[in-house]
Structure formats: C-alpha cells, structure tokens
Design a protein around this nucleic acid. Structure first.
Lengths: 362, 362
DNA sequence: ATGGCCCATGCACACGTTTGTCAACGGGGT
DNA sequence: ACCCCGTTGACAAACGTGTGCATGGGCCAT
C-alpha cells in the first residue's frame, strides 16, 4: 500500500471518520471521541460538545462499530438461531428478542439450521467469528455438544424453546410436559378414552417432554380407562403429521382423539383425515400445540395449547442482556406455563359430565 | 492502560488470536494470515499450511471478523429490513435471503420498523454503523427519502417487495397491478359484477399498485357491467380488514365479491362476514393476495393470488451480491409474476359461461 | 564457481476507535 | 508571591488482521 498521507478526508471509503470531524472542528480526535461518548462527555466543555456535534452533522459522520468494537471488544451484536424461520413458531420469538435488543442499540443476526446436522455448528461458528456478544439458540438438541462450543468460546448463551438440559447454560422454555397433560385432561374431560399422541422428534426436549407428559397424563387417568396410542413423527412438519396419522389409523383404528405434539403435526393429521373422508371432530378429535397464528381460522378451528412465544423471547432477551452485562445470573431454568385454548376440533363423547378445570376461551 | 507485554496468549479476551497461532507454530503471524487466506495461500508452502492449521485446531482459533473487517472494509454482514417479522409474508423472504448469503459466508441482520415513522431511519442508521455491506429493504414507501440516506452512505441497497419507485436503486417485486387484474378477471369470469376492493395503504407501492390494478381491470370490464367499489385499510392487518369490510357493507350492501389487497385484509373481511352471519362464498366471495402459509387450510379455503416470496428473496439476494461485488448491475427493476390460486372462497354467480384463462390448481 | 532469479517468509504500517497518562492553563488560598 | 489543585485537551498505545515491500536462501544456468 503506497505510503500516502491521507490528504483528502477519508477518500478511501467515502465515509467520514472521527479524524475528519476533529480536523473540521480544529481539535484532537480524542476530544471528539470523548465528546461523542456519553460516558466521558462530562470531561468536555459544553460549547466544545456543541461544536463537535455540529461538525458531526455537517459531515454525516457515523461511528464505525467495527473499529470501536475491536477496541472495546463489544460488537453490539447478538445472534439468534432457529431451525427454520419459515416455521411460524419462530418469527414471534425472534421478533421479541430483536425488540429488546434494538432498544439498547444492539443488532440481531438470524441463522437457520434446518435441523441439518452440520449446519448448527456452522452457524454458531460464523456468529462467533462475527464477535456476537450473546447467542439465543432455539435449536439445541438434548445434551447437544454444541453447548460446549458456546461455553468454550466464552459467549453468553441462552437456550430458548428447546432445552439442552445442560447445567452450563440457562434456558427459557414452555412446560412441555404440562402442555400435553392439559391436552389429555381436556380430552378426557370431553369423554375420550382411546387417545393417541403424534409425537415429535425425541432428540429434542420439546418432542421428548411432550411425549413424556402425554404418557404421564394417560397413566394418571388409567383408572378412568384411558388407553394411550403413540406414533412418532421424524420432524415437526405437516408432512410428518400426515404420515404419522396414516400410520396411527392403521395400527389403532379405534382411537377417538389425537393430541399432536405441535400444530404442524396437527394440521398434517387433519389433512390426512380430510383426505380419507374422516370428519374432525365428529369422528376424531384433534388437539394441537403452540397456537400458531391463524389456528383459529382453519377448519375446524383448532383446539390447541397456547405457547407464549413473545414472552419466551422477551424472557430470553432479559436473561441474555443480564449475562452480557456480567450481572451474575445463576444458571437458570425459566419455565413458562402453557394454556389450553378451546376451539372446535374436539368433540364431546357421550354425556361426559366432568367439568374441565383448565378451560380458557379463544 | 498499563503498558504490559502480553505475556500470556491473549489472556484479555480468552480468545486465541492469530499471534497466538503464530507463536505456537514458531512463525510470523503474517505467515499465518496468508496460510489461512485462500486467496494468498499459494504463497505458502504446503507443509507450513499444514503446521499452521494444526495449531489453529489445537488453539481453537477463530478469525476475528471485526478486525479483518476493519482492515478490509468488509464486514461480511448484510441487513434486511421488514415492517414486522410477525407478518407471515416476511419470514419466507428473509429466509431466502439468509440462505443465499449464508452460502457465501455472510451473516444476516434483521430489523423491524412496524411502519412507525422514525423507526426505519433508525434501523438503517444502526445497520450502517455496523458496516453492513448491503441492505435489502422491504419497507420503503413510495418516493421514500430514506433511499437517499442509503445512497449517500454508499451502501448497496435493493428494495424488495415494496418499490420506492426511485431510479437510484434496483427493486425486486411482484406485479401488483397484474395481481389485482387476475383477481378481478377471475371474479368476472365467475359471474360477479358488483366487485369491491379492500385496498391497503396508498403510500406504499404494494397498496398503490394493487389499487391501480383493480381500477384498471374494472374499467376494462366496464362493458360487462362491472361496477367497482373501493374502501381503504390503513394497514395490511386483519383488524383493518374487519373495519374496512364493515365500512364496505355499509356503503355498498349489494356487492357480491371482494378482492382484498392482501390475505391479512381478506382474513379480516372473512372474520367480519362470519361475525355478521354472512356466508362466504355463498353470499359474498373473497379473493386474497400473497397466498400465505395455511391459506389453504382456513375456512373457506382462500382463493388468492400467489406471491413467489422465496423467489423474491432469492432474486434480491442475487442482485445484492452482484452489487456488493461491484459487478456493474444496471439499476434494475425485477418484476415477478403473480399467479391465481383457485380454492373455495369464490362462488359462481348464475350460469357464468366464460372460461377463466388464468386458472391454476391449489 | 558465481550471478541471477524465484519462492517462502518476515517486517511494518494501516484500518478507526477507545482510553490511560500527562502537560498546560487558570484560579484560589496562605 | 507561590503553590496546589481542578479542568481541558493532546498524545500514543493498543484492539486483531491484511498486505506491499524487503529479505534471505536455494537452485539453475552460464
């Protein structure tokens, strides 16, 4: 690179630097730096601050976060990792996190893993190289080794939605076990006894916990004659819901209700039923989970378990901000409560008299 | 800061630097830099590269993008700005953009504006400070002054979805005019004559273009006796769809069909009809636009105009990548074609015999 | 044998900030 | 009148990396 004195103000990039501002104000750039930094501004005289700020405006100067970040080791950047932004469950979470961080001048990266093995590690790697100050990860599998990578890299990380069940990092999630209990209890209260579960992948806490909750709830109601049937979907997708439902009807033709591990699977099941001319809820009832957008508009309106996604994101952000600021937050497990939302996809069987305690309106 | 020689390898941050790697390999760090840079690797002997890479692995070294970005003026970061990630139209777009950029090692920032006046400028400002190499903006209003800010800051920008109609930047969008023409033509073909339009905000190209397309199409069919009715929603939301529909029925009680400017407004209209006990499509037909996820599952399945969101994102990304690489891309206007998707929310009126030329299956 | 050339590596500066340290200056107290 | 202290502004050293240029050693050809 030719050793040329920077005669013109930052002609290389076209972007004004702190030096340009200083030159124009006729002061040293360290003075400008302090005048612009709220923490050090008290060291500078008011009229000087005014002068500097005038020059900033005139030149359209913007501080360079790359440079200041390099110096201060703070990139003002966080990353959030989801499996697939196209899955309606994720945008509200990302949105809530972005909101909280935007408010403190941070900027939010998003990455998708698609649940493809190598991708999560790759995304984490890319984000760490970028110097993210924090990570909110919604893709951790149970006992995910990627947790160690985050710890090792010394970047504050919070698991969200899915819980790796590690003591090394805090997590924010909904009570998956309880969610399926709510579903089963509702179905039982409506008179159902032969109840099926379309489970999700068992290597992630959501699928695992909901499956466990389902079994537990069925066991609790065994005296009422509840007999569970379970079939597994490989992923939380509509397609897997369809195939799982087909498999279910083959193996257990006599079921009267399905508690799906999430709304996507529920919609798949619904679709399969409709394709076969089986009516919902008259022939078979369905309960979903998450209460995604528009689940009240589909036919039949889906009775489901509400997951407070925005709160999930907000809690995760709060936790992450605390960790970033070194506020000693004891490795926490935040568990939010799900809520039954009754709509039209569950029918009442014969004269079931038991009142449902967990009823809420749509 | 105490003038202390860095005795321990990067004890300050805990993160291994290129210097640590060099020390361990017993070479100068510039050699390490070259060995790790694919572009300069040919200058280094293979065995040296191997030795360096071994040390990299041992130390868990990750290059610091902040530092290299500062040096090279490339942050490997882009930003995408949407009004609200929670609106189902946006995630697929963001997803498509992120995909293309992840493939070339870039990282994607997202920002929400909520269509609140100051927010867009603030987000752009934050992103530019972060040194984004490119911007994909889905929130530009028509003749938006924020376009100038992007140009002035010299950051490659492409407008997506909404078109500011400026020659200063390229845009990628769907043919909004044509979309409403498709809707009207379909309705006319089904025998409808008294057709209403629930328009979106007119200060953005989507709302404006669809409104224009609607009027144009109605004019073209005036000889068939088509009489248009128009009412405006302030935003593209379900709520505005409801109020607009109410207003519509008050002013024009005799309409038989509604072409909504997007699916959100359509759902709002639908909701209002249902609340009033008006049947869709038997009493009033509805056509939406965008074909958001699950629009085939709602009741009635929504006949709508499909917007190729993923292609929109991919095209925008392609354009942006070209601009970033200084490939001279002539300021372009990419216009993708919408497609009619026939479902169940449009009824046929009397014995309409005209065949619909733009029919596609769901 | 020696000169020239090329390849691999080392050197040092620059990218734009932040911030500890210090000099200069002015005013007030003894 | 002198000294001390408080207020301001200047200086320079980092932060971690990329890269033009210099350098040194080995090899080939004359």
């Amino acid at each position: 690179m030719p050793r040329k004195p920077p005669s013109k103000p930052s002609e290389r990039t076209g972007r004004a630097t702190i030096i340009d501002v200083a030159k124009r104000a006729g002061v040293h750039w360290s003075t400008v730096s302090r005048a612009l930094n709220p923490e050090k501004r008290h060291l500078i005289s008011p009229e000087m601050i005014e002068r500097v700020e005038a020059c900033v405006k005139e030149l359209g100067y913007r501080s360079n976060v790359l440079a200041s970040g390099l110096r201060t080791q703070r990139s003002r950047t966080i990353g959030v990792i989801v499996s697939n932004l196209g899955d309606p469950i994720h945008p509200p979470i990302v949105r809530a996190i972005e909101d909280r961080f935007a408010a403190i001048g941070y900027v939010t990266l998003v990455g998708n893993t698609d649940n493809v093995p190598g991708r999560q590690a790759a995304v984490i790697e890319r984000f760490i190289r970028q110097g993210v100050e924090g990570l909110a990860v919604a893709t951790f599998a149970r006992c995910d080794p990627a947790v160690d990578a985050c710890i090792e890299a010394n970047v504050p990380t919070v698991a969200i939605f899915r819980d790796p069940e590690s003591d090394l990092i805090p997590s924010v999630r909904v009570d998956d076990d309880r969610a399926m209990e709510l579903a089963v209890e509702h179905l039982v209260a409506q008179g159902h006894r032969r109840i099926a579960h379309i489970a999700g992948p068992q290597n992630v806490s959501t699928g695992y916990g909901r499956h466990r909750g389902f079994r537990r709830a069925c066991r609790a109601h065994a005296r009422d004659g509840v007999v569970p049937a379970i079939v597994f979907g490989a992923e939380f997708t509509v397609e897997d819901g369809e195939t799982a439902c087909a498999e279910l009807l083959r193996a257990h033709p006599d079921i009267t209700a399905i508690a799906a591990a999430n709304d996507m699977l529920a919609i798949g099941a619904l679709r399969h039923l409709q394709a076969r001319g089986i009516r919902c809820p008259e022939d078979i009832s369905i309960v979903g989970m998450n209460n995604m957008q528009f689940m009240d508009a589909i036919a039949p309106a889906l009775t489901t378990i509400h997951t407070p996604t925005a709160e999930l994101g907000a809690e995760a952000a709060t936790l992450l901000i605390a960790m970033i600021n070194d506020t000693p937050v004891k490795t926490t497990r935040v568990v939010l409560q799900p809520k039954l939302v009754v709509r039209s996809s569950v029918a009442q069987i014969r004269g079931a008299v038991r009142r449902d305690a967990n009823l809420a309106t749509s």
